[in-house]
Design a protein around this nucleic acid. Structure first.
Lengths: 198, 198
DNA sequence: TTACTTTATTGACACCGTGTCGTTAGGTAT
DNA sequence: ATACCTAACGACACGGTGTCAATAAAGTAA
């Protein structure tokens, strides 16, 4: 791929992206107009249409970039499959760290849910990870009491829900701490003394 | 309250609501115009503005009505607080039944996520129920290993996630069966032989 | 039935956001 | 410095919005 991109184009695109993010902090996506994005970026409205079909495409490129970055962080390394259940899972730690790194973006997208479609994409990434874990369990001869597809839906949504809770509450704990809680919840459950087990 | 509503008004409002629901099955909410809603309902566009400020208000009334109905189904009766963990929780059963009863509506709102805002409202209803359960646990001297707020976020999202999974997969199981799975998942976990517990 | 009230219809209007052009101005690479 | 891109600008037609005044139709009360 000859990815020689004109520096002016890079600059222009970055300015449109920053303008959109700034506007998303102030108002709902659907109420943002191309005119506003152009004004905020101090570029001409016609210039916008030179680079994008519409504001959907601008948003899409912004999200795709972030999702690709997130997927890389969540990639399972071979040595991570067999992890110590007493320690937080490294993938969880990296996930929480990534959300701190690109905090403005994730606050807008996940905490304030300005673009609902994005949450589904993150959910799919988490589901992939959960599914890999479930496969590992099966190989290890653990049998599911509840159908696997239901278990996967349950755990995936639970993880995502806690992540969103953490963002909405301004990240009150460290990535390591949060990763530990998720690991605990999904293995031994939330209670010290589980009345439903013996 | 003198709730004598002119039958013409009732009829007109119902026609606008049905038109909106029909259109939501075909396309995204944001792409639906007031003009289309009026055409579909075979009413005049000016008539629409006689009853609603904009299409947001029409949608809001439709959702508020459904949410009030759902809240009633999920109300906890006194005798339901102490339930047998071997049986499905009656509230779950009623919840799933309600989603079958108003299936077109919940397919649109939760499975196809045509109106993301609605999911949050349902989530809040489930959270209330989860919170009541957690309170009951505390009174019963069970101590949380994970901070209660995190546990609540975890369980609430897990429940909602399974409900949405069930809707998306065209309700492959009965309300009683699904309620049983949720009860099992949140008490003893998804596995027959949990390797993380002794 | 009659008279009165409320609601629905119709066509028209100004306003705003969109998407597209042709032209002019200004960076970029060689 | 030259030729080549790209950005800026103003203008245009189009479509959805929200409102209005005049008229028709349907419900209500006596």
């Amino acid at each position: 791929m000859s990815t020689k991109v004109d520096p002016r184009v890079q600059r222009t695109k970055a300015m449109f992206q920053e303008a959109l993010l700034a506007l998303l902090e102030e108002k709902d996506y659907k109420k943002i107009t191309v005119r506003e994005i152009s004004e905020r970026s101090r570029l001409n409205r016609a210039t916008f249409y030179l680079h994008y079909y519409d504001k959907e495409q601008l948003l899409e490129q912004l999200m795709d970039e972030a999702l690709a970055d997130l997927r890389k962080s969540v990639q399972v390394n071979d040595y991570e499959y067999k992890y110590d259940s007493d320690n937080p899972h490294p993938i969880f730690v990296r996930l929480f760290e990534k959300m701190i790194e690109r905090n403005q973006f994730y606050q807008i997208m996940l905490a304030h849910e300005k673009v609902p479609y994005f949450i589904d994409s993150v959910k799919r990434i988490i589901e992939t990870f959960v599914r890999e874990g479930a496969q590992y369990m099966i190989n290890d001869q653990h049998i599911f009491k509840v159908p696997m597809e239901i278990s996967i839906a349950y755990i995936t949504s639970a993880y995502l829900g806690v992540i969103i809770w953490w963002l909405k509450n301004d990240m009150p704990h460290t990535p390591t701490y949060m990763a530990k809680q998720l690991t605990t919840m999904s293995t031994v459950g939330p209670m010290v003394d589980n009345p439903y087990l013996r």
